[in-house]
Design a protein around this nucleic acid. Sequence first.
DNA 1: GAATGTGAATTTCTTCACAGCG
DNA 2: CGCTGTGAAGAAATTCACATTC
Lengths: 213, 213
Amino acid sequence: MPTVSSEELAAAAGVNSAKLRKDFSYLGSYGTRGVGYDVEYLVYQISRELGLTQDWPVVIVGIGNLGAALANYGGFASRGFRVAALIDADPAMAGKPVAGMPVQHTDDLESIIEENGVSIGVIATPAGAAQQVCDRLVAAGVTSILNFAPTVLSVPDGVDVRKVDLSIELQILAFHEQRKAGEEAAGEPGTVLQAPKETGKGPDGDVPAVMPA
Amino acid sequence: MPTVSSEELAAAAGVNSAKLRKDFSYLGSYGTRGVGYDVEYLVYQISRELGLTQDWPVVIVGIGNLGAALANYGGFASRGFRVAALIDADPAMAGKPVAGMPVQHTDDLESIIEENGVSIGVIATPAGAAQQVCDRLVAAGVTSILNFAPTVLSVPDGVDVRKVDLSIELQILAFHEQRKAGEEAAGEPGTVLQAPKETGKGPDGDVPAVMPA
DNA sequence: GAATGTGAATTTCTTCACAGCG
DNA sequence: CGCTGTGAAGAAATTCACATTC
């Protein structure tokens, strides 16, 4: 399929075709009137815009189950991420291979970051260690942190943190599940709210806004 | 701190206080004019609305590194989730304790779900097994699925799926990182876009919309 | 006096609809 | 003729501002 129309893409994504065209237009005029978008060219332009064409070395700190799962996760490489090092505070872990890579000790954190030009760090340590690891990462030059530890990290200005809370997604499912259960018993005391407005045919299913009664 | 004002909460959350009050008002009138919101009561009302006061038994299918990490994740219990069973297709895993709980074999998936009244399933299997596991979960009565496998699952109407892609968060960080790097060299060829508009003082830092030039 | 709850004003986002180009 | 790109219209979300209540 060499080209694709905004109509087709919009249908696949479950959004309005005008919105899709307008969004694309913010990236530039990459379509051809009367024809559509050249798939390969479009993919390249979007990839470039998102930073997928760059090489991003990352370090993963805390090689427990989650750290190991992340190290083994195939999705990273295909998006331009390269796991530059696995770091753990446990001396017993040092040298052990995880995902075909020897685990290194926290002592070498600073030098590893500098040598590899790492600007993105992933924290998969227990909650208690997270802030300390974070501080060291930042001091060593890391400016973006993905935090899996159940703590809120404080960082200086200019450093981005994203926190991944694995239970939030479950939370959202449970919220919908609760609504499904409540549908049979509408008007029940305590059921103050209406069902969420379905935003569209989108397969997305985001968190619905709670609507006024 | 027995009560809190919308102003304080809004400042803490980095949003406008009127928005916060309006949002709360959709849940009911839980505040007191001239005083604010009773913290304990508010927490209870929000918890109830979100379904935190219910007990949600979940099963985790696929006990590799990620499945084990999820099983050990402390955040679930505090939000009303109870890991009812860990299930894996590998017979060698059966009976092994993970997070203080014996792993059970996929053969028993249906009976486990029925016996525990499970309506939420977590899939942490390799991509190849995910759809099959999903089909069995759905057939057994599961109506919400959290999918960590890098596959798009197809499910019948009435079943909710949420897909967690661990690389998307990294993606977002890399996107910002790219922007930071681009700031020094503004006007560079290829730098078509403006910097994202900062939405507010929110500590949130969501994905910025790309703005028209 | 202090802070909620909410209509009205404002801003932002989405969709329409069509001129313009290949 | 078909489909993009985009002003203008319409819808939705956010903020203002104040009457109301404790």
